[in-house]
């Protein structure tokens, strides 16, 4: 075990020395990887922020039924009873016009507006949750309710949120595809870097094999070099993303404040940032593995 650790420490030391030896080239490679990874990582972060924003809205199959302002409480009670007895309805929540006005009064920035009103313009309303989430079923129920004389309007609340969720899913798929494509590019960059390293160190490899180095001994520093390059790229990607979000947040904060919100774009969570690093390091290792597997066996002592 101690010997195994010693051999890995030796390989890591050799890889760090090679990384430092060609500092400029190593950093440029890491920068290429960092920029390539920052694109899908940025897309992921934006989608995560949008998803968090939309989670404030319900995606349940809901209808909101607004009564006419002139409808009486008896009309509302009758409609409530009808809805509760309907087999297609899972639950019904009634919000009286008084409760709605109270809620509006308590909403930031609208208290003064409500106070200026000399009558309550809000209608009684029902929030109806259907058992069948299919749009056709919701629309059929909505059409029936629109035909009730005391009903002013029926709104299918969840439709836009569902469309947004579908768009976000599509966005997530696009980010995954972009990540896969750029991941392949990252593997190719590391593959080529390690190939050049192997070629420039041909003599050293040949001599090492001549004096008893195993394939594992020769391979290990290249694996670590790929891993280091990938990890450095991942760190740069995280840095680029952090800087880009900070720059975007200047505008986002102003926009959100205009709507009375404190929303701003959040950076990756620690686990996500760690996953980005691990992903880029693993891709670096994979590029090194492929390169070493292809070229190292060709070098034998003569």
């Amino acid at each position: 075990m101690r010997r195994w650790l010693r051999e890995h420490r030796h390989a890591l030391g050799a890889a760090l020395a090679r990384f430092a030896e060609q500092r400029t080239a190593s950093l440029l490679n890491a920068l290429v990887i960092g920029v390539a990874l920052a694109l899908p990582a940025g897309g992921y972060a934006l989608l995560a922020n949008l998803r968090a924003l939309t989670q404030r809205f319900t995606l349940e199959p809901e209808l909101t039924v607004f009564m006419r302002v002139e409808a009486t409480r008896a009309d509302a009670d009758a409609l409530g009873a009808r809805l509760r007895s309907d087999a297609r309805v899972r639950s019904v929540r009634f919000t009286s016009r008084e409760a709605a006005l109270k809620e509006l009064r308590e909403t930031a920035g609208l208290g003064d507006v409500v106070a200026a009103l000399d009558y309550n313009p809000l209608p009684d309303a029902f929030v109806v949750r259907a058992r069948d989430p299919q749009p056709a079923a919701l629309e059929a129920l909505a059409a029936e309710l629109r035909a009730v004389p005391s009903v002013a309007e029926v709104q299918v609340d969840s439709a836009w949120a569902r469309r947004l969720a579908a768009l976000l899913d599509l966005g997530r798929l696009a980010v995954a595809l972009l990540a896969a494509l750029l991941g392949v590019a990252l593997v190719a960059v590391t593959f080529n870097t390690i190939r050049l390293q192997i070629l420039t160190r041909r003599d050293e490899i040949e001599i090492s094999k001549l004096i008893g180095a195993t394939d594992a001994f020769v391979r290990r520093p290249f694996f670590y070099l790929g891993l280091l390059q990938g990890a450095a790229g991942g760190l740069l990607a995280a840095g680029i993303l952090w800087a880009a979000l900070a720059a975007l947040n200047v505008g986002v904060r102003e926009l959100a404040q205009a709507y009375g919100s404190d929303f701003q774009l959040g950076f990756l969570r620690p686990a996500e940032a760690a996953a980005l690093l691990a992903f880029s390091a693993a891709l670096g290792w994979l590029g090194a593995y492929l390169s070493v597997s292809k070229y190292l066996r060709e070098i034998e002592p003569k």
């Binding site: 010693r6 050293e204 001599i207 001549l210 008893g212 180095a213």
Partner: peptide, 28 residues
Amino acid sequence: LVFQDQKLLYDRSVYDNVMLPLAISGHA
């Protein structure tokens, strides 16, 4: 093994050249 062309590593010191076989065989 000793060769006519020595097969030394010219990017490291005399000492490091001699240390290489020991590192390969896993000596501390």
